[in-house]
Structure formats: C-alpha cells, structure tokens
Amino acid sequence: MVDPGWRRIGPDPAIRAWADSARAAALRSLATSDEAWRCGGTWFVGVDALPNTQDGAIQGAAFPWGALPLRPEPLHRAQLSVIRPGYPRPSPDETPAAFAFRRDRDAAHLDGLLPIGPDKRRMVKEPHAWILGLPLNRATASPLTVWEGSHEILRAALLKALAPHPPDRWGDIDITQAYQQARREAFVRCRRLELAAGPGEATLLHRLTLHGVAAWKPGDAAPPEGRMIAYLRPELPSVEAWLKRP
C-alpha cells in the first residue's frame, strides 16, 4: 500500500480529554493575546500560544501519547490556529498573487521552509519530525487540506537540489526553485483531500506532506470563537534526517 502521507487517529477518550483542557486554555489565550489577526482579521496564527509543558500536558490533562503512533519526546508550546468566517480576506501584508494562492490553492506549503533575505528565498530552517493537528472544537469550516503522496515528490526534488552540497550546509541552500516546481507537480499528480476532524481525533502528517487550509465556504459552521486546532511540530537535529528518515 502506498503511504498517503497522512493519518487520522481516533476518536479516543485520552485525545478528547486533552482537547477539552486545551480548548479552555485556548479561549483564555484568545481573550488575552495582543497578537494581530492576519488575512483581514480571519486567521489567528498563535505560535507557542498554548501553555502545555514539555511532556505535552496542559491544564492537568496528560498528553495522549498512548493513543498516538509516536514515541514520547520533549514538545514545544503548541500553536493555536484559529480561523473565522470569511477566511481568507485580503490584507496589506500579502501581495495580490499571494492572496490568490491562499484563496485558490489553500496557501499550500511545506512546513520548515522559511523565507530568508530581502528576496525571501526558501531554506530549510526548521526540520520537523512530524506534524500533529488536534482539533479543539467541532467545526465544518476551513479544514486542513493535504495532497496525498506529495511527500515523496517533495523528498525526491529537494534531495536532488541539495545533493551537490555537503549535508551539514543543507539548511543554508536556496531551494526555492526546486520546491516550487515540486509543488506544481504535486498539484497535478496528487489528490487533494479536506481532512475535517473534531475533538477526540488527531491528524498526523508526514513532515514532507504538502498541506494547507481550505477557504471558508458558504454554509460552513464553527463555534463563536472560530475553528480552533492545536499543532505540534517537534524538530529533528538535521536537515539530512528531515529528508532521509522514513
């Protein structure tokens, strides 16, 4: 069986207990944060916004390692991603082309690539081990989207682009062209899926899977605070491990 690059887990009571506790913390974070909402006031990025400890526990709820196909490891504070009705709207910090890509292609991206320098050239600066999404409330709006099998397309393209360079320098090499070409190839070859999930479930992505967020559609629904998902992405020690590890 071909690895699709994603997996839905649950529902599981341990995941639900963590999500319920995290939701209460998330609502407090939204009420007290001075972080500006992006995309015309429709997206709260919320990096490191949740107060979980390194073992993943939050507000007395243990992290549900036993329900996940993952080995326990130290975790960063989780991102809190919140989407409100109308996502995405134009904003001054996005070019018209970038906004159109967000609206029409879900802002499809590979985590760990950062825009470096005045020309915003893409380099691998955050080589994550995996990407775990934990929904904190029930919503039908703006689900996570993935392109099945895209991780192998991206792996092959980036390995080819980096092969001429020593592995210890891979994080400093401009891979913009190879990345953009591989992303275009994934749009053609891979099936796009919307991965809606609710509290008690988790969505685990291969670290190289192309993914994004669907636009809020007419008829979509979410609680008053918007669609809330917690994300965890612990880092690997090297870009070489990021590309070569299964």
Rank of each mutant, 00 (worst) to 15 (best):
R23F: 07
R245D: 15
A197H: 07
A222E: 07
I173W: 10
A100P: 09
P90G: 04
G86V: 05
G60E: 03
P115D: 04
L232Y: 02
W242N: 02
G149E: 07
P11A: 10
G66Y: 05
T95D: 00
L134Y: 05
G41I: 01
W18V: 07
D12N: 05
R105P: 08
A98M: 11
A129M: 06
F187M: 09
A36G: 09
A129H: 10
P166Q: 03
W147K: 11
P115A: 02
V188D: 12
R191T: 15
G66R: 14
S21L: 05
V146R: 06
K244V: 13
T145A: 07
I116H: 10
A36Y: 06
L50P: 10
D93A: 10
T209A: 06
R7K: 14
G117V: 04
A108S: 10
T145I: 08
P218F: 09
A178C: 06
L50H: 04
W6T: 08
T53L: 14
G5W: 04
F99G: 00
G226M: 03
I15P: 10
E201H: 04
D106E: 07
L110F: 08
P127L: 02
I83E: 07
T140L: 10
I83W: 14
S142K: 08
P4L: 00
R207G: 01
